[in-house]
């Protein structure tokens, strides 16, 4: 530790290099020590493990499904019956049922989740905001078997009267038609409305709402303050601001969140199994009793299936897997490409 000699006259000198300038750029890579190497390999291994896991799901389901698929061939997609023992099986009806339930769910959930997300970000007083967010998140945490019980024992009773009303007044629209319901009869037997795709879809919608809502809320909360205030300064009402700023900004998030919810709705199992009574024909009359979905088919037929029947169920599972994966990838593309999603990608 030398003290600076204050008496010395300090002059600044430009150092004269005695060496020739280096001909090559200095290597800037830092040398990794042993610990960092282990850290890098270890964490990368976990990433690879997750990739491998998803690949394995596809590969092993395909391997198990191969037996059934090779025997049924193309008719697997076009057949609606499910009798593997007589080699007459296909996913036409269950896929149609799955899509019907999922579409009902999304159509109901979309306004509900968008309204909730907008209410939380734009309307609710700030001190209630975190409570509301917690409640919506809690909705996502409630197990699907609980929703199923509620739907089967309480909600179904409420919905039947609504189903009857819709079928009476809007029965002329093909999807609301109910065979067996007499619009002019005073009392139609309520069993024609129970266990329908409509009720199952409504219950699934409740499970989809929190997923869609959290994506949309995230997006709406990122709306630039300047644009928001600009709209207000130009004399816009709150709804005017939402329409002119929030909704266009959050478009990608709305579409992505909706599709994410659709993916979840396609795969929902237990609530659908509890509510719906299975049938094996392509049925788009949503109010009518009975319906089906891929996941409920697997859950119901699984215990009695063996050998070839299991392979057929694996094929159905593979179809569901591919479908949800496709929907999800499209959703993530929408979210990532949107203006608001750009910042969330690290």
């Amino acid at each position: 530790m030398g003290r600076i000699d204050v008496t010395a006259v300090a002059t600044t000198t430009i150092p004269v290099s005695t060496q020739a300038p280096p001909t090559q750029a200095r290597n800037l890579d830092s040398k990794q020590d042993m610990g960092d190497k282990v850290f890098r390999i270890g964490t990368s291994a976990s990433g690879v493990a997750v990739l491998a896991l998803m690949a394995a799901v596809g590969v092993f389901l395909s391997v198990q499904a191969a037996q059934a698929l090779s025997k049924s061939g193309f008719s697997f997609i076009t057949t609606s019956d499910w009798q593997p023992d007589r080699n007459h099986f296909g996913i036409a009806a269950v896929i149609a049922g799955t899509v019907t339930i999922a579409l009902v769910a999304v159509v109901v959930a979309l306004p509900l989740s968008m309204g909730t997300a907008l209410f939380i970000t734009e309307v609710a007083p700030p001190r209630f905001r975190s409570l509301l967010i917690a409640l919506v998140d809690l909705m996502a945490a409630v197990p699907s078997v609980v929703y199923g019980l509620w739907g089967l024992f309480l909600f179904q009773g409420w919905v039947i009267s609504l189903s009857r009303w819709i079928s009476t007044w809007f029965g002329w629209i093909p999807i609301f038609k109910v065979t067996g319901a007499d619009p002019h009869g005073a009392v139609t037997n309520s069993t024609v409305f129970t266990a329908s795709a409509f009720i199952a879809g409504l219950v699934v919608a409740l499970m989809v709402v929190p997923i869609q809502c959290s994506v949309m809320r995230e997006v709406f909360s990122q709306v630039p303050l300047g644009e928001r205030e600009g709209a207000f300064a130009l004399g816009s009402t709150r709804w005017g601001m939402i329409r002119a700023v929030s909704l266009p900004f959050g478009q990608g998030g709305i579409i992505g969140g909706t599709m994410l919810g659709l993916g979840r709705a396609l795969g929902e199992t237990i609530a659908v199994v509890l509510i719906i009574s299975p049938r094996f024909d392509i049925n788009f009359h949503v109010l009518e009793a009975g319906g089906n979905s891929v996941s409920s088919l697997i859950a119901l037929r699984y215990s009695e299936a063996s050998g070839f029947g299991l392979s057929a169920l694996m094929a159905a599972g593979l179809a569901l897997f591919i479908m949800t994966l496709g929907v999800n990838f499209v959703a993530s593309i929408f979210i990532a490409r949107s203006r608001s999603g750009a910042s969330s990608e690290a």
């Binding site: 997750v50 993916g263 795969g267 569901l320 949800t324 994966l325 999800n328 993530s332």
Partner: peptide, 11 residues
């Protein structure tokens, strides 16, 4: 991982 969040539980 994003895709996995929507993996149907039955699958």
């Amino acid at each position: 991982v994003d895709a996995m969040t929507a993996l149907p539980s039955i699958v």
